[in-house]
């Protein structure tokens, strides 16, 4: 290729990426400058300019996109300071969506053969894995909006000390939580009494059947749930008395949450919880959501706890 044609081709690629208003002018100047540079290189090397020489010159100038970007004021979509956080949230979010989507796909399409597995994976890929890219898109918009606000209103972007004491608890809130948990347990084990109260003892028999617990569950598994709930309520009672979280109560809370998640997960395949099939299926779906939420919460608390523990000199 003729060296002048090569330079022209490079300038064309740069020009396409320049603002329309300055495109022709900058492109003309760039071509003149690169021609000057090439002539100087040729004179320095003592031989006529050739394609290799021109190629080396434009390579040193940078990719057309890089060269064009240098003519613009710097544009930052996501602040470099936020890049690691953006990457971490992207990876964690995609992983969560993929894993939940995979579990959902496998539950909806039981695997009986290798073909079933490939089919389910195909459905997961097209139905979950690729569409999950909405998540990084949402993050880009959020981070870009935050960066824009910081640039336009720098006075509001400065760091401010956190006034609230994060370990302090709202005693009334926790008391209300304990009362709600006790009521929930009472309703779980005495659904019939709730119906009598609400309908003056005239509820339909089907309603009583819908809220009846499975006898085997009441005999063998419910005591475990009750014992754990009593422990959880005891922990909340301690918190209400002390008025704040402390290292020991934080760790007990995380441990207890993990044990409760384990027991609830064990309930799913261990047998019926409610005697009526529709109620049982609904409650088990709710348990799955509770376990996911509780594990996420416990994971965050564990992360914070480990981070506290790392504020130590590394000797």
């Amino acid at each position: 290729m003729n060296p002048d044609d090569l330079i022209q081709s490079y300038v064309d690629d740069v020009a396409r990426l320049l603002p329309r208003g300055q495109r022709r002018d900058v492109a003309y100047e760039l071509r003149t400058l690169l021609t000057d540079e090439l002539a100087a290189k040729a004179a320095e090397s003592g031989r006529p300019a050739d394609e290799a020489m021109a190629h080396e010159l434009v390579l040193a100038f940078g990719r057309p996109a890089e060269a064009a970007a240098r003519y613009h004021p710097a544009l930052t979509v996501i602040d470099p300071a936020d890049s690691r956080r953006f990457l971490r949230l992207t990876v964690i979010g995609i992983a969560v969506i993929w894993v939940l989507g995979l579990v959902d796909t496998l539950l909806r399409h039981p695997i009986g053969s290798a073909g079933d597995l490939l089919g389910a994976l195909g459905m997961w890929w097209t139905g979950v894995a690729v569409p999950a890219l909405w998540w990084p898109g949402v993050l880009v918009v959020c981070f870009a909006a935050a960066a824009w606000v910081r640039r336009t209103r720098p006075e509001r972007a400065g760091w401010k000390p956190r006034r609230e004491d994060r370990d302090r608890i709202n005693r009334f809130g926790y008391l209300a939580g304990v009362a709600a948990a006790v009521c929930g347990l009472f309703v779980l084990f005495n659904g019939g009494l709730l119906l009598d109260y609400l309908f003056d003892g005239h509820a339909a028999p089907a309603a009583y059947q819908a809220l009846a617990l499975d006898e085997d569950f009441v005999r063998s598994r419910a005591p475990w749930l009750l014992a754990l709930m009593v422990l959880q309520l005891a922990l909340y009672a301690v918190l209400i008395v002390r008025g704040r979280w402390q290292p020991a109560t934080r760790r007990i809370d995380i441990g207890l949450a993990l044990v409760i998640c384990g027991v609830l997960t064990w309930f799913l395949p261990a047998g019926d919880i409610f005697a009526a099939e529709p109620t049982d299926q609904t409650v088990k779906a709710v348990i799955v959501l509770i376990v996911i939420g509780a594990l996420f919460d416990a994971g965050l608390k564990l992360h914070r706890e480990l981070r506290r523990a790392t504020y130590l000199p590394s000797m």
């Binding site: 300055q22 900058v26 400058l33 540079e37 040193a60 100038f61 060269a67 240098r70 003519y71 004021p73």
Partner: peptide, 15 residues
């Protein structure tokens, strides 16, 4: 100074 740095810089300073 590299040409790729200097030439765009002139345009930016003009802007």
């Amino acid at each position: 100074i590299e040409e790729g740095t200097l030439y765009p810089l002139l345009r930016r300073l003009e802007t």
